[in-house]
Amino acid sequence: MYDSGKVIAGLVIFVAIATFPFWFGMGKAAPMPKPEILTKGQKCVESKEYMRSTHMQLLNEWRDWALRDGKRLYENERGEKIYISLQNTCMKCHSNKDKFCDKCHEYASIKPYCWDCHYVPKESKKWN
């Protein structure tokens, strides 16, 4: 082929751009923020470690169970039954969304799109 040099250069640039999000975060080691817990003494849905690492999967499962399977009661590892709801369960305890969910997510530089629809009463003032 002609101009294989140009093609390869183009490919390199493409790969660099496509993988930008992966290597951009590398080397940044700011300390992890401490999310503020309002309901001290109470326990989260699952253990703290589990929640920290797996809350996104749990929320996805909750969503599918509640909406698609129509089952809205969850039994956790401790054997307690918990009503499945993002707004009415998670956010009742973590009503300080800005100092809890958001704080962590800003650190991890992700922006879950959940809040386009779900909301906490405090923040609804902005648009209500």
């Binding site: 499962e61 599918d64 169970w65 698609r68 399977d69 129509g70 089952k71 809205r72 009661l73 969850y74 039994e75 039954k81 009503y83 499945i84």
Partner: peptide, 16 residues
């Protein structure tokens, strides 16, 4: 297979 994982851990709330 979607939606079937660990289905045993969810149920209908009482009185539903």
């Amino acid at each position: 297979f979607e939606g079937t994982a660990q289905a045993s851990r969810v149920m209908h709330p009482e009185g539903a």
